[in-house]
Design a protein around this nucleic acid. Sequence first.
DNA 1: TCTCTGCTCAGAGGA
Length: 956
Amino acid sequence: MDAVLRGGRTRRSTTQRWSGSAHELKPAQTVVVKQEESDVRRVVHLKERWEDLPLRTGSEQPILISFKDPKSFIIHHPDIMLTMTSIANAMPCPRKPILQSLIRMPGPASKPMLYGNILHGLLQGALQEQNFGIDETRRRLNDELRKESIKLDVWGTGLGLDDVRQEVGGKAGLGFEKFGQKWIGSTPKSGEKPSLLAITGLHDVEEDIWSPKWGLKGKVDASVQASILAPGAKQADETIAPLEIKTGRSVGVIAHRAQTMLYTLLMEDRYGIPVPAGLLYYSQLDSVLRVEAKSNEIRALIITRNELASYLANERTLLDSTSSTAPSSEKATFLPPTIDHAKECKSCYAVDSCMLYRRAIDGVPTHDDDDEIFELYAEKAGELTDADAAFFKKWENLLTIEEQDVLRFKSQLWTMTAGQREKAGRCFSNMVISAYSNDLGKSLAKIHRHSYTFTRAQLDASQSAKSLLSGHIARGDPVNLSIEPDILCLSRGFVTDLKPDSITIGVAYVIDPAALLERTKHRNHAMSSDKVVFRIDKDEMAAGTMKMRANLAALFFSDVSDSVKRLRQLVVQHQAPEYEIARMPRPEEIPNSFNADQTQAMERVMTAKDYSLILGMPGTGKTTTIAEIIKALVARGKTVLLSSYTHSAVDTILMKLLNSEFEMLRLGNIDKVHPDVQHLTLEAHEESSDLLQLDARLMRPPVVAATCLSVDHPLFFKRRFDYCIVDEASQITLPTCLGPLRLADTFVLVGDHFQLPPIVGTAVVLYVLYEDDGLNPSDLAVITPYRQQIKLLTGLFADMPSVEILTADKSQGRDKECILISLVRSNASGYIGELLKDWRRINVSFTRAKRKLVIFGSRRTMAGDPLLKYFLQLMEEQKWIYTLPTGAKGHDDGRSMKLEETKAEGSVKAEENGRENVTMKEEKGKGKAKLGESLIEKKPFLRDILAVSGHLHASE
DNA sequence: TCTCTGCTCAGAGGA
């Protein structure tokens, strides 16, 4: 036995979590473990290769003891889940997969990768349809090539559709037919060796499995039911098996075996039955290998997994001991050392980042004659100065801190029950599917090919179902679906709609509860009546920081374009930007509406050879200026990349350009794009007829807009821009905006560094309100600082979808004719909360209205803050405050209670007597909201607003 | 003391 548990064998379970530390007992291979929560202690003796488990004295580390009878395995840091590919990659060099988990370098897809991708889809399609004929394969290939997402991939490689049709068709056609003949059937056919297998059924394709039991996660190409006649066996075994498809030239690679073997662990965990072997299909050889899950090999793989996991864990603990501001001088050890194998290293695809980390993080001297890879190191990192290295290290550190902040919730998915996590607001428990629809037409948006709506399962009378709006999950958020207790992350998707009693999720693959129940019938699943009960958890992604790290790293690579070198000079070495007077705008290019500052801004931008910064306080017209400058640049025949960290900033500028003549392209997740500019996205178009048309759509528009983190779109490997304009630069972290900046020689950063005393700012904006009549719903926006309030209001305004409802933060840079603000807080103690104390947030929201601003809030509560108190005084002097009557309909029913006070529930009661609701109204004209009658009927709260507003008009 | 933002993922093959 590999590991022995002394003092009683523990129950077989994935939920037994332990912490181990080696400081209590003498022999190094003996460890005391204590069960989490219960404090039960056990002594574990580690033998053979488990001795090397890197447990350090004095620090408790989580351990999981997993069983695959009759063996036991130690999973170190089980909450860090590693992929099959990272473990397979770790065999030649453990540093490589660690680097890959930090940095995902974007790059255009290679041809072999594209072919591999398509071939996988084709064979999976054949398995699903149980038809392997050549004609069927050809049909599927044609279907694939019609998909916009595939066309985009093909376009990215520079190939033509016919090239792909020929190449892939040639590889797939006959081979897949042979596959069907040889291995699909009810019993293994007698005869030659590869035939001792029959694939008798298909359970799933691309099955996503997370296994905290093994600390592994991955996607299985195909989960099949198979009848396998093992060598020497008399009778075939009926089993579930992972089928791993390999379409490339390399065959029999150890990494493939490792990958397949690890999948057997994942499938065992999901299906709850033994999975003795996996299948490895090589399409080039027409052969299927049976990969037996041998415990000594699995042990070796798990030990590799543990090694990687402890490096990743080191990274986290290292950061804890390091201050967030000053990069520590202590030597970091979160990276495995370089293997220093000149030949291997030279051909490694991660060599650039590897050598950069060796220089900047490991701090290896560049001039060391004993260095095995001296030449390579000098070539890759020789030019980097100490200042460069320090710059990289500082930002790398900051990114890691941010990453940990995102990931800290991740393990809650398997360490907390749905009920527990729902209390923390990051999960919906007890959900059942109530409706399904699909959107197969929009093939580019793979993420919502299938839409499922969930509602609460029938609950005990004692349990009251909480509104789905009262958590941290919101529309657009990534989520994952699980079934308690064992099916973790069955599927992932995005919230496309959220109502108090239902949530709709878009996913890439069909969710079939009946099939799921059938194939995992050995397990217990949470059920309500005959329906499967799901839990929906907010998914925690950290892909953004990986992209930022990639942007940062790319600044320091050796083999880069001149513009990246220049960018390094400007950003890292602070060289002064240069200007070229000859580019000065001619008088006719300057808009008549421009004032002196705007004109100067335009001159700086037009003449900039490197970069130019535009600074201005909120509300001073930066956005308008940018829009006008873009028009002028396009008129000069220039191309412009427009970017910002947020979708809303990008879209705000685009909306100001909508009436221009020129073409614009908006890239990015269509769900996050403002409805008014969604028609500029690729998804909004009809599918392109051919690559030529797609090429035109991507290459022709002089203005391309995207968020900073989505500039790894295939387009950006083929296009460079004359200008790059990055809005709200002051809020963007440096590594974020480096991405867009690399794509243009000249760039413009726009932001608001200056701050104005808020009351003055506010007063100025209020003063210049226009006098006018009439107001459309689309001229109206509602702002509130709290997310929960947004969700409530969204429901209340369901009849008026054109009324935008924004958080204070989201309203930044936006404006509307009329703004309603709900300040929410209301309590007897005058407690205002941190959020409303932030005058910048108040300043932003108070300055968004063009003509009319109406603020709702509790006077007494607001007076608890000096700033708002002063503001109240100001309003009072103007007689602009209107008191809503206590007990006014709509203020005492439960609904508006929630509306007015979502958090401090204890104080609501106190407020019912003598509640002082205040409506402050700011009015220069006679604008009146024309709200729909039906809406008013249904929403007493709004009727109050209108009543007060009407009263005002009558008295004037 | 409850605020914000963005990012699918893992693996597609090749040396």
